[in-house]
């Protein structure tokens, strides 16, 4: 069996985006983003205009996957938190609900201690959202159009 599709609905999205935006403010972060473990960007907040968030999302997921692999070899469950210190920008990475990855980019305006503290709170909030979300797979009631896809729809995708 393929694992079911992840579906983000309006209310989930609003809660996720609110949590991300709140974390930007409370942690004095430059950027916060949330990625699923397969590398899809879920939400982003802060100063993201000049950032290639798609690439960041994929590389972050790869990074977590790689350290997860290391953890397994060491019979650790997982390294749920990572911190990378740069000259100007620092990055804090946290696995939430074993399913999504919360990334905070910050500079000297904030501190690791503060970021850690705020991330803990946000993780709890997000954990609740994703727990509920995982109990609601894609259903005909979602009104998504994929149930009626025709061959023509699919052909059209590549034709431009």
């Amino acid at each position: 069996m393929l694992s079911p599709t992840t579906v983000i609905r309006e209310e989930d999205f609003r809660r996720i985006q609110a949590a991300v935006d709140k974390l930007v403010r409370s942690a004095y972060a430059k950027v916060v983003f949330l990625v699923d473990k397969a590398g899809q960007l879920i939400a982003a907040g802060g100063d993201v205009d000049h950032l290639d968030t798609t690439s960041l999302a994929s590389l972050t997921a790869g990074n977590i996957a790689a350290t997860g692999g290391i953890a397994k070899l060491l019979r650790e469950n997982e390294f749920t938190t990572q911190f990378h210190e740069g000259k100007n920008a620092h990055i804090h990475i946290q696995v939430v609900y074993n399913r999504v990855i919360l990334v905070v980019i910050f500079d000297a305006k904030s501190s690791l201690g503060l970021v850690r503290l705020r991330v803990r709170k946000t993780s709890e909030e997000l954990g609740q959202v994703f727990e509920q979300l995982s109990q609601r797979p894609l259903s005909p009631r979602d009104g998504a159009p994929f149930g009626e896809l025709t061959d023509e729809d699919i052909d059209n995708l590549f034709n431009d």
């Binding site: 609601r136 797979p137 894609l138 994929f146 149930g147 896809l149 729809d153 590549f158």
Partner: peptide, 25 residues
């Protein structure tokens, strides 16, 4: 393109056979 088609067909199947009654949240 061929794999994209298969992925969408899978999705179509999933949506059409998805649980008809969601847990009432």
């Amino acid at each position: 393109k061929s794999v994209a088609r298969l992925v969408f067909l899978e999705l179509k199947k999933e949506q059409n056979t998805g649980p008809s009654s969601e847990p009432d949240g």
